[in-house]
């Protein structure tokens, strides 16, 4: 698809979210809900005695019945549908030809840990903080965007073997 047309479609989905729900798109918040629900299940005593979980439960009585969780379930379905139509459904590892699958997976996990931690510190990830924040012209949206993309650019040279 032409990327500018793709961008217009992305903008329209974002507008729809604002119009229906008064909020933009997000992603990391749904994973956080899942983490909290997982801790509730595995270690309920720990969740009851830790301030962070108690505060989270006060603002989210049932963590999994949330807007972001349902939206991200939709992303799974929507991505799958598009991949199915285009014939892209396949279990595989995507990487630079210069590295092994194992290296790629290790760095994917490390990158995920950084991104997961950073998304909580920064109160939202590329979707919820940068994209949505920029659409409403919020200062934090532009700060997030500049910090995320600026850092990735600054470190690109050192990570080049992973990609090129």
């Amino acid at each position: 698809m032409n990327p500018y047309l793709g961008g217009v479609l992305l903008g329209l989905v974002l507008i729809l979210a604002f119009w229906v729900s008064g909020r933009g798109l997000g992603a990391s918040g749904a994973v956080k809900s899942a983490v909290v629900a997982g801790v509730d299940l595995v270690a309920p005593g720990h969740a009851e005695n830790t301030a962070y979980y108690k505060d989270y439960h006060e603002s989210h009585p049932s963590p999994l019945k949330s807007w972001l969780v349902l939206e991200m379930l939709g992303v799974l379905v929507g991505g799958f549908l598009s991949g199915a139509i285009a014939g892209r459904l396949k279990f595989r590892v995507e990487k630079s030809p210069k590295i092994t699958n194992k290296t790629r997976i290790i760095f994917a996990v490390i990158g995920g840990i950084f991104f997961g931690f950073g998304s909580q510190l920064g109160r939202g990830c590329t979707s919820g903080s940068a994209l949505t924040g920029m659409a409403v012209l919020s200062l934090s949206g532009f700060l997030s965007m500049a910090a995320i993309f600026g850092t990735a650019f600054a470190l690109a040279y050192f990570a080049r073997k992973l990609w090129i």
Binding site: I105, V109, G111, I113, F114, F115, S144, A147
Partner: peptide, 29 residues
């Protein structure tokens, strides 16, 4: 948070939303 996310982006190649999307078509990474 943005700086840490940027490091995660260049090391991992995804952000949270795109990783869920990519996982939905079978990307193991």
């Amino acid at each position: 948070g943005g700086v840490i996310m940027g490091a995660g982006f260049i090391l991992g190649g995804y952000c949270p939303g795109t990783s869920v999307c990519a996982a939905s078509i079978g990307k193991l990474d």
